[in-house]
Computed example of a mutant assay.
Amino acid sequence: MRILAWHVHGSWTTALVQGPHTYLLPVTPDRGPDGRGRARTWDWPANAVEVAADDLRDTAFDVVLLQRPEELDLVQRWTGRRPGRDVPAVYVEHDAPRGGASDSVHPLADQDAVPVVHVTQFNRTYWDTGRARSLVLDHGVLDPGYRYTGASESVAVVVNDPVRRHRVAGTDLVLGLAAELPVAVYGMGVDRLRGDGLDLFEDLPQARMHDLLPAHRLYFHPYRWTSLGLSLIEAMLLGMPVLGLPATAAPEAVPAAAGVLSSDPDVLLATARRWLSDPEEARTRGLAAREHALERFGIDRFLDDLDAILASVVQEVTA
């Protein structure tokens, strides 16, 4: 199968291109949001192929995997084909709704030609998708292997743009924890953070993060409102125990044996202190986290589920 898909989310696309198909990635001269092409910080296989935007009209593909509302128009302008009508299509919704549960109408709600595929059950429930068919494709993550040592008596956090996304990302909770305990923060834009007890790692390659993260005693997932961050799943696969808020899809992703989710900052601080002083409990919980993540978020399960979804829409449109 030849799948047209934009490089929007690097980690998610890394999982996507592990399949047996040919993945056509639009590229523009500036490699901007509408044409990033292949990733430069991930190692993608050769079946992830760049296609110049100007060449797409003469490029054959079997299905288009949309991820942003503007791609509906891009497909029609760049290829001359209407998603869901002239070519099979699905829309992968990566985010939780920005509004409340009562007014979260999805951009594709007023149509029935393109199914909306959510990355968590939480997102499917909270988005109002109207007439659009609503499906779920749970995340799949490449296994980096068990690497946990927990040798550093410190807390690891991964967050991008923590200053601008202050309360959404739970940056205030990170700073509160760092006032009491050593905290290492990884991600883009973390160099703008200011606070005591912080060790900052700005925009490292994924492979380097996988080397450094499991040396920390535990992983803190502070997000108040987000979809399910892939960094959380990666930390679990590395064998790290998880501390976080019981928000959005986290309670379904983190079983009790793997960590502690609480809305009480005092509970979060007390748990972090306990694990810093009890490496054996931290290690035991991290092993449970890895076992669960391998079963729930394995790459083979992800690719099988995606193939079933794509085969279904191809059959419907071409029948």
Score class of each variant (00 low, 15 high):
Gly10Asp: 15
Thr79Pro: 03
Gly99Trp: 08
Arg68Met: 14
Leu108Gln: 08
Glu70Tyr: 13
Ala109Thr: 08
Gly37Tyr: 02
Ala101Lys: 11
Leu66Trp: 05
Gln18His: 10
Val27Met: 04
Val116Glu: 02
Ala89Lys: 13
Arg68His: 10
His21Thr: 05
Leu72Thr: 05
Asp95Val: 11
Pro20Trp: 05
Asp54Gly: 10
Gln67His: 04
Pro69Asn: 01
Trp12Leu: 10
Arg98Glu: 14
Arg36Tyr: 07
Pro115Met: 11
Gly35Trp: 02
Gly99Tyr: 12
Pro69Val: 00
Phe61Glu: 00
Val64Gly: 04
Ala113Cys: 09
Asp34Met: 15
Ala113Trp: 10
Val51Phe: 03
Thr22Ile: 14
His21Trp: 07
Leu108Trp: 04
Trp42Arg: 09
Phe61Ala: 00
Pro115Ser: 06
Gln76Ser: 11
His9Leu: 14
Arg82Met: 13
Val105Ile: 15
Asp30Val: 10
Asp86Gly: 15
Val63Arg: 00
Val27Pro: 03
Val87Pro: 04
Trp78Val: 07
Asn47Gln: 03
Gly19Ala: 06
Ala113Pro: 03
Ser11Ile: 13
Asp86Tyr: 11
Arg85Met: 09
Ala39Leu: 02
Pro107Leu: 09
Gly19Trp: 04
Leu72Phe: 05
Glu50Asn: 02
Asn123Glu: 09
Pro97Ile: 11
Leu74Asn: 02
Thr59Tyr: 04
Leu74His: 05
Thr14Ile: 07
Gly99Phe: 13
His118Gly: 06
Arg82Lys: 12
Tyr23Gln: 04
Gln76Arg: 15
Asp95Gln: 10
Arg36Ile: 05
Val90Asn: 13
Gly80Ser: 06
Val75Glu: 03
Gly84Asn: 04
Val75Ser: 00
Val114Trp: 01
Pro29His: 10
Asp112Ala: 14
Pro88Leu: 09
Arg85Ser: 12
Ala109Ser: 13
Ala52Pro: 08
Arg38Ser: 03
Arg82Thr: 15
Val87Thr: 13
Asp86Thr: 07
Ala96Arg: 08
